[in-house]
Write a protein that binds this DNA or RNA. Structure first.
Lengths: 194, 194
DNA sequence: CACCAAAACAAGCGCTTGCTTGTTTTCAGG
DNA sequence: CCTGAAAACAAGCAAGCGCTTGTTTTGGTG
């Protein structure tokens, strides 16, 4: 029987190193050293270095998707969905900062096939956000002067979050989400003139 | 005498490869092949692979700084400065998309000392934007409900731009800047209620 | 206790990396 | 036409890479 969480330990260590040094700059021997497992022994638990990257990015993708899907498909106003979606997004970033960083920053290092899998999930995630904005516009809740750029601004804010948000900082996910939502909603709401 | 633009050719090729594959995934032999110069001959023009990365990131940093500084120090309302600054920023991205991508994405691969140099310029660039927002607030032009997040939103939009903007696309820098500014200004302007 | 698969181990293979070396070619200035 | 420095060249070094191999140790199970 496996010692408790050996694979998990390796994933954790790889995640930390990939997020700080980058995938290509991290060597199997780095992971070996940081986890206290000889590099050869690692291969009793993993198939390849790239498998680690895929598992991490896929975990990140699924975390984002599974947290946003029920919100989009649920009931409530578009504004509620936007706020809830932002909270969910920031929670994922806050709870898995390293995995989120790898997901956003290192997915290009994957092989073509696997990159396509992650790309598809990225696209799906973007389209979920689009659904919220569309719903808000169709319902008349949102009336942005420029829907395309309102969407761009929302996604930029979400996608850039991992660059500056620190879980150990003064603001919890809810506060960040709330203030972000408020700022975004100003631009989304019905205004005739600036 | 040097053949015309040999160094420039190498920088151009390196820039393209670094921006698409990443610094660590690009080998000297890749650059050699893509430029038609044998790998050994490259070293008649460069000192090291990392020098190439530094020259590119530093070029990017200087391009952003030198285009924003005169705007911040110039005359005009804060709104004008914001619009002009966005135009300048997008022009830099549009005119040097590959260098901008390397600047935003690969600067972490630099050695500690050089990373510090680039970090300093990044900080200066952020503070220039902050100056514009502060000036707008002090003058009473801007009255955002949440200055900290208004700033964050502005920087996120600017910093994420290189991820989606394509110079060959339908929108020129001016149009993008204008629409982005309009969306941001809604959130910056004096509003009591959403 | 005996068993045996899972895990850890030491060693190293084949290859690629960034870069250097010693030599030859190129080509503008005298 | 010379000359000499700059550039291109072919060859390859030392180090590091991902990963494999053959063997020993470990620890739960009958």
């Amino acid at each position: 029987m496996p010692r408790r969480g050996r694979k998990e330990l390796i994933l954790e260590v790889a995640c930390r190193l990939f997020s700080t040094k980058g995938y290509h700059a991290t060597t199997i021997r780095d992971i070996s050293e940081a986890s206290g497992i000889l590099s050869g022994s690692l291969y009793a638990h993993i198939k390849s270095k790239e498998d680690l990257l895929f598992e991490i990015t896929n975990f990140g993708a699924e975390a984002f998707l599974s947290s946003l899907r029920p919100i989009v498909n649920g009931t409530g106003t578009a504004e509620e969905k936007l706020r809830q979606g932002l909270i969910a997004h920031i929670r994922v970033v806050a709870d898995n900062l390293e995995a989120a960083t790898v997901f956003f920053h290192e997915w290009k290092a994957l092989s073509e096939e696997r990159r396509a899998i992650i790309q598809k999930k990225r696209d799906e995630y973007e389209s979920l956000w689009e659904q919220i904005l569309e719903e808000g516009i169709n319902r008349g809740e949102f009336n942005p002067p420029d829907p395309k750029f309102a969407r761009l601004l929302t996604l930029s804010a979400a996608n850039w979050l991992y660059q500056w948000y620190r879980p150990e900082g003064p603001m919890g996910p809810e506060e960040v989400a709330d203030r972000l939502a408020t700022n975004l909603l100003v631009g989304l709401s019905n205004k005739k003139e600036v």
